[in-house]
């Protein structure tokens, strides 16, 4: 047996396949970053070396397409969804897991059943409901329905299972109230769970398209996905400015992923455990 690894045909094939997969996966990211520096024609043709139109593309995205406003709208909606979502779902998961009752388990079963219902089946009655309350074309219409997430409650409940009930018992003996046990003892030790849930909620809202597409009616209320999609409907598409907006829309998620890889993947994997 030789110490150096052999460069067999099989090994080269493995490396080639993996390299190809990595290149195909990363290439569109490189291409869209380069695209922000090109004029529309060169974006389309697929020039792969940076051009000189970065500033003009950026200015166009900011002035003609209101990029800062769309970014702020998206951010506001996503952050509020995360904040309310963590409070509501975290508390519910805690209640379902740490205060066992037959009645609540039945309720939980009903919640789980609704996981298979596709969004498209809910948007019609929801649209009528928001129209009735005159809440169409508001950001509240986008935030409110995404706060409660059965998946997040399920995911957090799985994680609350790991929190030892003995610690809660000990705190009760020391005279702590149930709510302060939750806020002061349980929540701080479940930070990783909350981080994963936050990432999941943020992604879902930051990327959401169908429901905002239905509820948003005016330009100033648009989110980034809606803005990008409507740019694609224009007669002439400003590809340079489009690439700037695409990059801005991908960037926060990319930063989130690279800085919190573990929680990010845990958020995705939560349901397999």
């Amino acid at each position: 047996m030789s110490v150096t690894r052999r460069w067999s045909a099989g090994r080269i094939l493995v490396i080639l396949i993996l390299a190809l997969a990595a290149v195909i996966s990363v290439f569109p990211f490189y291409w869209m970053i380069v695209g922000t520096t090109l004029n529309p024609n060169d974006v389309l043709r697929g020039i792969l070396v940076p051009g000189r139109d970065f500033v003009s593309n950026w200015l166009q995205a900011v002035k003609n397409y209101n990029l800062p406003l769309f970014f702020f709208n998206s951010l506001k909606i996503a952050v509020l969804t995360v904040v309310f979502g963590l409070v509501v779902n975290g508390l519910a998961a805690f209640g379902f897991e740490k205060y066992p009752s037959k009645a609540r388990d039945k309720v939980f079963g009903v919640l789980l059943l609704t996981l298979i219902i596709p969004q498209i089946a809910l948007v019609i009655p929801m649209f009528r409901m928001f129209a009735f309350f005159d809440l169409l074309n508001t950001h509240a219409a986008i935030i409110l329905p995404s706060i409660m997430s059965v998946f997040i409650i399920f995911f957090m409940r799985q994680n609350f299972k790991m929190f030892p009930t003995e610690i809660m018992e000990a705190a009760r003996v020391d005279g702590a109230g149930e709510f302060s046990i939750f806020v002061r003892i349980v929540t701080p030790s479940m930070q990783a769970t909350y981080a994963s849930a936050a990432i999941y909620l943020f992604l879902g809202q930051w990327n959401s398209y169908l429901w905002p597409l239905i509820t948003i009616l005016t330009d100033t209320k648009k989110t980034l996905p809606i803005a990008m999609a409507s740019m694609m409907n224009a007669y002439t598409i400003e590809y340079g400015a489009l690439m700037v907006i695409v990059c801005i829309s991908v960037l926060p998620v990319l930063v989130l992923f690279l800085s919190m890889q573990k929680q990010f993947v845990a958020g995705l994997l939560g349901s397999v455990k």
């Binding site: 509501v88 508390l91 519910a92 209640g95 205060y99 809910l122 409660m148 409650i153 939750f182």
Partner: peptide
């Protein structure tokens, strides 16, 4: 009762945006 208090907000959202639409 505290258990119900915990799940109540989520149930309210569930009723409005899941149960009622269904």
């Amino acid at each position: 009762r505290f258990g119900w208090f915990c799940v109540a907000p989520a149930m309210a959202f569930f009723t409005l945006f899941m149960l009622y639409p269904i």
